[in-house]
């Protein structure tokens, strides 16, 4: 009898827990913002960064679908992936620009030194 009540309680707890996983609204906004920043940083113009940006967009779309299906927890994790991919795209785009700037400055320094 006691075992029966424990099982019922466990199922009830699980049902409450599953149903109560909040919609990942904040995470959704965060991920969308990161994707937007990545686009502003020109990630699409950099092949490596664009790969991560594309993944982020796909994951964002998947997350929206999961939310629509009521699977908030999976959606939350999918959004974490999207955010991580978008942030990596941003950093790669920034690093690429910094590389170009550094190479340009180094070339200028070399030219000047040769002329000097």
């Amino acid at each position: 009898m006691m075992t029966k009540w424990m099982s019922v309680g466990g199922i009830a707890l699980c049902a409450v827990g599953c149903a109560s996983y909040p919609a990942p609204t904040a995470r959704m906004a965060q991920s969308m913002s990161s994707v937007s920043v990545a686009q502003e940083q020109g990630a699409a113009a950099n092949p490596q960064a664009n790969d991560y940006l594309t993944r982020a967009n796909e994951e964002l779309a998947n997350a929206k679908k999961l939310v629509d299906d009521g699977n908030n927890e999976r959606a939350d994790y999918m959004l974490m992936r999207a955010d991580a991919d978008a942030k990596l795209a941003i950093e790669i785009a920034k690093a690429q620009k910094a590389d170009v700037a550094a190479q340009s400055a180094q070339a200028q320094a070399k030219t000047l030194q040769q002329a000097h």
Binding site: I92, A95, A98, D99, A105, Q106, Q108, L112
Partner: peptide, 19 residues
């Protein structure tokens, strides 16, 4: 990537200083 950015930024600063 952050590390690469820091290195490039530092390189650019050094080159600009040299210029």
């Amino acid at each position: 990537a952050e590390s690469r950015l820091a290195t490039a930024t530092n390189d650019a600063a050094q080159a600009s200083q040299q210029v």
